[in-house]
């Protein structure tokens, strides 16, 4: 099972990987690690959305390492670069003990609802009793979208009408989850831009309800991040984290050509792990994020 998932990730990431690998290899081709090399490397890293600052930081670290060790071969240098990146993305996650409440947050259009369907499907397959709460009462047909997914996946859904108070939906869902001895309750929330103070206050309120009513539950807040997002993602992560304490990130849409480099910067700066990676539109297109494998695959 694990191997096949690993294979799936491999296949799905081939596009991402090839780009990155090819570029890095091109950069290293000549084998002389001079200023031009470092500049090219910096550029390659920036093109992954890693950010200029992080790219410079990594390049500088690599430069020091090369000087220290008198490294000369492409293989050595590649190894160092891999180590640096693996180090950056290795962060311990929060244990997923049940019963658990997952609140899923993020800006508009990152794929929260689809991710919830994938999570529900995954936990159900693990034999867990899963329930979803349609906490996006704002966007047109958001509830219908989650409802359709809950039918396909075969999990229970707690919902209300459009325009209802999302906190009340979550409140009801927690009550239902307790009564039905649910293992994992996954709460959808409306997408919101992190600079909308009122909407963030609303989220804070939902979170308060979860913390108050979810006594005895392991509370795990996931932020969904679109891999195509640029540097703004760091702001997103910071503001959402200030608001509801994020314990994990789901990086979606990694099946495109985007490299999601900003995720590396986020993990490095905020020490919040990426838990899952979304690689498609089907329920099973969600895989666990393994830092070491992830970096390995980038360079394989």
């Amino acid at each position: 099972m694990e191997l096949s998932l690993y294979e799936r990730m491999r296949n799905k990431l081939i596009k991402t990987k090839d780009n990155f690998k090819e570029k890095i290899e091109n950069v290293m081709y000549l084998g002389n690690f001079d200023d031009d090399f470092f500049e090219e490397l910096e550029e390659t890293l920036i093109l992954t959305d890693l950010g200029a600052e992080s790219a410079m930081k990594i390049t500088e670290q690599l430069r020091k390492k090369i000087i220290e060790t008198h490294a000369k071969t492409k293989e050595e240098v590649m190894g160092f670069l891999k180590d640096i990146l693996t180090d950056m993305v290795s962060v311990e996650g929060k244990p997923q003990t049940t019963p658990m409440i997952m609140m899923v947050v993020g800006v508009n259009g990152v794929g929260k609802t689809t991710t919830i369907a994938k999570l529900a499907s995954r936990y159900k397959k693990e034999g867990k009793k899963v329930m979803v709460a349609a906490g996006d009462t704002f966007r047109a047909a958001a509830t219908e979208q989650l409802e359709e997914w809950s039918k396909r996946v075969g999990v229970e859904i707690i919902k209300s009408t459009k325009g209802a108070d999302p906190s009340s939906v979550v409140f009801d869902a927690i009550g239902a989850a307790k009564a039905r001895k649910t293992d994992i309750l996954i709460c959808d929330t409306a997408g919101r831009l992190h600079n909308k103070v009122n909407l963030m206050k609303e989220l804070e309120k939902i979170s308060r309800i979860v913390n108050r009513e979810g006594d005895g539950f392991n509370i795990h807040n996931l932020m969904v991040l679109d891999a195509t997002t640029g540097q703004n993602a760091l702001n997103q992560a910071k503001v959402f984290h200030d608001c509801v304490e994020i314990s994990g990130i789901v990086l979606t849409k990694l099946d495109g050509t985007s490299k999601g480099g900003i995720a590396i910067s986020i993990i490095d700066e905020m020490q919040i792990p990426i838990e899952y990676v979304g690689i498609g539109e089907k329920q099973e297109d969600l895989i666990e994020f393994d830092p070491k494998k992830f970096v390995d695959l980038l360079f394989e």
């Binding site: 800006v107 679109d226 195509t228 540097q231 993602a233 985007s258 480099g261």
Partner: peptide, 12 residues
């Protein structure tokens, strides 16, 4: 196009 798009915007 999402205004928050990163380097990929060009390829897209």
């Amino acid at each position: 196009v999402d205004a928050m798009t990163g380097q990929e915007s060009v390829n897209v």
